[in-house]
Design a protein around this nucleic acid. Structure first.
Lengths: 335, 335
DNA sequence: AACTGGATTGGAAACGTTTCCAATCCAGTT
DNA sequence: AACTGGATTGGAAACGTTTCCAATCCAGTT
């Protein structure tokens, strides 16, 4: 492959001149032409690895997400990539398989590859491994780290996520406005940030509505999964005083809840009003169509890109920033 | 950040020795200990960019897919990443937004970043831009390129994809075995490889069953989308001699078809048997549960990783290889 | 104790850029 | 025609590794 030296020789100029041309410095027109001709003639392409070594910037952001096959994460990454690509940045992505150990390993691999910043969608709120990383440790670390969808207070990073409390709150408010008083919640495990925030929003909305919470109506499923969603809804329906409305707090528990509704042949919204979470495509497949809280994945990805670009350009304004984007409540036939 | 020279000085050895230690060469035990101590003491991490420049290998595979937010592509990439990571390779991913021009641009950006191989999930079967790339042009190019889910005959690359003919064939065979004679097809635009292959499989199965194809039962939707799926099914149902069974050939047309079924309040499978495509999660949301052809995304990703690893290690056996993986027909209540 | 030769180690050169300083160019002035 | 000084250009040094050759070490032999 042709190098800058080959171009310099071919064009009869110095390597510095070729480099300047490649970096957008305006040369004397005839010099520029000679250089460009040589580039075209030899089919030269700049070696970004060499440039990266010299400039100490790879124009690459490291991304770690728990599961690529999950629409939520992959949609965020889609818009992250789009936003970064506009500024010439690429992404090096890793799947942590929802395993905190793998997550920490992937982060250190990415740093060995000298990414310019990290986009982390962690699988737990334990980010202590960040402290053990020399580049990141110390209060004066300037290495940009952005945490998505998870609380990272106490760590030096920006955060972008859905306003989970608000999401649950607007859903529950709507159910209360529809006259429901016994409203069930299917959320995730205690200690899991988004699960707890959504529960918090639920509690706040109940309080606003003057409804006192009942333990029997709040199910913190152990794995935030389909099975848990189904079991939780069945348990509530089997209890002595079943709910007339339920909010399922993620995609998988929504799947499970819908199945319980089908199995019991309940008619929505009359026998049970249901609001699901996350997956828009799903909504239309349920009859009546499922009302759903849609997280602003595009916005999160786009804002994350914008913020990371700023940080990589040295703008530390407002650091550390916490951006909470509002979810959208799409009302359909199930409420 | 500490470099290999700092380690050499700190440990009182030469840089070559440190390099050898880092590359797994066994040193004299006490030398190894001195080096390791220095590494630990200074918190050294190897600069992979510098290594990449010297070795001319980045241990990175470039990935271009049309839409990250699409479960099909992102699941393939998940398993691709997993398979490559086992061998120390990372992936640099780009979303082409289903745009052939962007696709070509992303490919050349990836090559500037000196990826060791390319995983391409192209948005059209026109891969002519590959020829214009100096690294890839010429019959003797050794640069590994793998094309997923698309025909790339005539280009020098390996191919891994679903056996689309077989997929459609087994679905139609099943419908024929169930006694259906009038079977509809909802596929994608002519000229679109997977759409045509699936149609081909449909035709083959009809022929086996001694059924002559009818144009009015074959709908090649212009965009392979939800709208097209719905419209196509409605058109078939409104025709004088409607089908008793239908195969929708991708996720989006399946969504559309299911909606048409709902709107007309048809009872599956009695009034219409339906087989969908791609999205497993969807199946359980439809009642009766939707029979579905599930593409072997995990297998494709895993096999692609295996093949790319081999190619990057210089093994050219069987080049160019075409791997067609069998889809899985999951039978549920809708047939 | 001196020698031998395989094992181990040291360190220069190189990978392909960028950047800085010095050298050269050349339009405008005298 | 000679001079001036800003604009342009040339090219050495450096980024942090790997690798090769040469130098050193040292266990085993004499």
């Amino acid at each position: 492959m042709a190098t800058i030296k080959d171009i310099a020789r071919e064009a009869g100029v110095g390597v510095g001149t070729v480099s300047r041309h490649l970096n957008g410095v305006t040369l004397k027109p005839q010099t520029a032409r000679k250089v460009q001709d040589a580039i075209d003639r030899l089919g030269f392409t700049l070696n970004q690895v060499a440039r990266g070594l010299k400039t100490n910037r790879t124009r690459t952001v490291g991304v770690v997400i728990p599961n690529f096959a999950d629409i939520y994460g992959s949609t965020m990454v889609k818009y992250l990539e789009r936003g970064l690509a506009e500024h010439g940045y690429g992404i090096l992505v890793c799947d942590s398989s929802d395993n905190p150990v793998t997550e920490a390993e992937k982060v250190s691999q990415l740093l060995q590859r000298r990414v310019d910043a990290l986009f982390l969608y962690p699988c737990s709120s334990n980010l202590s491994y960040l402290q053990r990383i020399p580049e990141l440790a110390g209060p004066e670390s300037k290495f940009p780290v952005l945490v998505a969808d998870m609380k990272a207070d106490g760590y030096l990073c920006d955060q972008v996520r859905t306003d989970n409390r608000d999401a649950a709150r607007i859903a529950i408010r709507k159910l209360i406005a529809d006259g429901h008083r016994r409203i069930g919640l299917i959320s995730g495990p205690n200690g899991y940030f988004t699960a707890e925030e959504r529960k918090q929003g639920y509690l706040e909305a109940l309080e606003e509505g003057g409804i006192s919470p009942e333990d029997s109506l709040m199910h913190m499923t152990p794995h935030f999964d389909e099975e848990g969603g189904k079991t939780a809804l069945e348990a509530m329906l089997d209890a002595t005083d079943p709910p007339s409305a339920v909010l399922a707090c993620n995609y998988y528990t929504t799947l499970g809840a819908v199945q319980a509704v089908y199995d019991r042949k309940l008619c929505m919204p009359d026998e049970l009003a249901l609001i699901g979470f996350d997956n828009l495509g799903l909504s239309a497949m349920v009859r009546p169509a499922l009302s759903i809280l849609v997280q602003p994945m595009e916005e999160i990805g786009t804002e994350a890109a914008r913020l990371l670009i700023r940080r990589m350009h040295g703008d530390r304004e407002g650091f550390p920033v916490v951006l909470e984007m509002k979810a959208n409540l799409l009302l359909k036939g199930s409420t």
